[in-house]
Design a protein around this nucleic acid. Structure first.
Length: 291
DNA sequence: CGCCAGGTGCCAA
DNA sequence: TTGGCACATGGC
């Protein structure tokens, strides 16, 4: 991997395992827009940037050396060797196909509070609608970050800000439905330190899952997503309808309850369970496996 | 119209 | 512990 800077343009080359399309459309993040030129504009940790891969080169606009060092190096998980992860996973035919299909995926290290709220909204919902709800919440309660010819950009609000939101407003304008009260109550519990994010960082996986499930709207699946996408717990294995379908069809060969699938996932893939999960989710959903 | 979508909360066996 | 049902919302 080679990295060069030219003002607010960051150019990364010799890194095969990085494709903005795979990274953003694989389901882990919601705050991104695919542009007409095939690039992806995204908002992360209070910054707006744009990623595009041309030939073998990755162009990151809006990323200067300071913000790269402070935010984006970690956000894109650039310290990790994804070639090695894929090699370790591709021991069987299924994972060989799944990693080949999603070879440009990296698991992002996202904002913790934003990820908690995002996945509370994801419950029994659809991805485009989840994106819209999060965008609207940012517009209503976040800070203005700037604009371009396409749209205006806002940061995701802090727990303090969101704790002051009215559930009726979340329902009426952000269309979050029955998740309205869960969102505000969760914001309050975090704001008041009843659920302490810094403490969760220090816990082992099982304790962390339990601690997160204190939050209303956070069950086993949402807790695992939060841990995987924002707490750097790459060994967690969220089980949603898609992973359930894929695991049943490709590995288990029989209908299996979700709780058992989560255990099997971590058993089979070990420390790489989270990566396996994301490759399988992307592969299964894009190819409509089991549907 | 009824069914379903990256589930969770609640209540009964 | 496990199994059922309701829960907003909107597209098909």
């Amino acid at each position: 991997m080679k990295i060069n800077f030219d003002g607010d343009l960051c150019l990364i080359s010799e890194l095969e395992e990085f494709d903005p399309r795979d990274i953003f459309t694989c389901g882990q993040a919601f705050r991104w827009y695919e542009e007409a030129d095939g690039s992806f504009t995204f908002i992360a940790h209070g910054k707006v940037a744009n990623a595009k891969k041309v030939g073998g080169e990755i162009f990151l606009r809006g990323v200067d050396k300071a913000s790269f060092d402070e935010i984006f190096y970690n956000y894109f998980d650039l310290s990790r060797d994804y070639k090695l992860v894929m090699e370790e996973l591709a021991r069987d035919e299924v994972m060989k196909n799944a990693t080949e299909y999603g070879k440009g995926i990296r698991i992002l290290n996202q904002d913790k509070f934003e990820t908690i709220i995002s996945f509370i909204i994801s419950a029994n919902n659809q991805i485009p609608r989840i994106k819209n709800a999060i965008e609207k919440i940012s517009e209503m309660y976040g800070d203005y970050l700037g604009e371009d010819e396409n749209r205006k950009y806002y940061s995701f609000p802090s727990a303090e800000k969101l704790s002051l939101a009215r559930p009726e407003d979340l329902r009426e304008f952000a269309r979050v439905g029955f998740r309205d009260v869960r969102i505000v109550e969760t914001a309050n519990l975090i704001k008041d330190g009843i659920v302490n994010i810094d403490e969760i960082d220090k816990m082992d996986l099982e304790d962390a899952r339990c601690a997160l499930q204190v939050l209303p709207g956070v069950g086993p699946k949402v807790a695992d997503c939060i841990l995987l996408f924002a707490f750097d717990r790459k060994e967690s294995f969220p089980v949603d309808v898609w992973i359930k379908r894929v695991m049943e069809e490709l590995y288990l060969k029989e209908v299996t309850p979700k709780s058992k699938i989560a255990l099997r996932g971590r058993e089979v893939f070990g420390k790489n369970a989270g990566f396996a999960n994301q490759y399988l989710f992307y592969y299964g959903r894009e190819n409509k496996l089991g549907k």
